[in-house]
């Protein structure tokens, strides 16, 4: 790891001001950034810790929505969201291991947009709103391919507003080594219809499975998608599974999420 300067502002405005420096990078839980710095793949001159900004932390109910601060750790979401939005809490409780969950944050995960991360499935699967220092971004506009998002340079996520569904569940099939999602599916049922978001499977990152959404919107039943199959074009193929396997898991995990939804 190369040497760096460490700053810990207490307001969003101060953080944004420091991040105007091209050599500065925002730092939340560090679960991706620190390993990449140790491997010397990343060498920011200034690390701007966001964890001292009170307004960016915590879980609160706002009518029919749950607002989660960007620096809220996975462990805190697993604990504090459980009574409001159990499917989101369960997803957070399955990320990594206890050490990861006590450091890793929602905002960090979304800003990184790893194609196998869990949170993007929940955000896209609920049609959540990503709130930044500058604007609000709809989930459908936010995810733009693996490790690519709608965030501008120096823009930071401050919170995410999740519309709480009638029923939801996340079904995750583990990649055996990393225990990221080999394929993970978040299914959420709203009065307006059903959303299905898939992570871990596609070279394009998290995506919505429109056919399954249509079928489930007309009948929220695992059997209603039993005959659907997702094409394998564009699916990830690696040591842990072929494109065909992941395409198959998209259907299987969607069905399992539907069965588990409550």
């Amino acid at each position: 790891m190369h040497n760096f300067e460490f700053v810990k502002p207490s307001t969003v405005a101060d953080a944004v001001a420091v991040l105007a420096n091209a050599e500065a990078q925002p730092f939340a839980g560090g679960q991706t950034l620190i390993p990449s710095m140790k491997a010397r793949l990343n060498a920011p001159e200034i690390l701007v810790s966001l964890t001292g900004i009170a307004e960016m932390n915590g879980v609160r109910r706002d009518g029919g929505a749950l607002v989660v601060g960007a620096t809220t750790t996975h462990a805190a979401v697993a604990r504090d969201a459980a009574s409001h939005f159990p499917a989101l809490a369960a997803l957070a409780g399955q990320i990594g291991d206890p050490a990861v969950r006590t450091r890793g944050t929602l905002g960090g995960s979304l800003a990184n947009n790893d194609p196998s991360a869990c949170y993007p499935a929940a955000v896209l699967g609920t049609g959540a709103t990503i709130v930044t220092n500058a604007r609000e971004i709809a989930a459908d506009d936010y995810f733009q391919g693996m490790f690519t998002t709608a965030l501008d340079e120096g823009e930071i996520i401050t919170s995410v507003r999740f519309p709480i569904p009638e029923k939801a569940a996340y079904a995750k099939f583990l990649q055996p080594a990393s225990r990221f999602a080999l394929t993970g599916v978040f299914v959420a049922k709203y009065a307006s219809g059903v959303r299905v978001a898939v992570t871990g499977a596609s070279e394009g990152g998290v995506f919505r499975w429109a056919e399954a959404e249509a079928a489930l919107s007309s009948g929220f039943d695992a059997d209603s998608i039993g005959r659907l199959s997702h094409p394998s074009d564009g699916m990830i193929a690696d040591l842990h599974g072929t494109a065909e396997y992941r395409a198959h898991l998209v259907r299987v995990m969607t069905q399992r999420a539907v069965r588990a939804a409550h």
Binding site: F173, P176, L182, H240, G241, T242, E244, Y245, H248
Partner: peptide, 8 residues
């Protein structure tokens, strides 16, 4: 015998 291999 990974899941992917068994399934295949």
């Amino acid at each position: 015998l990974t899941p992917a291999r068994v399934w295949a």
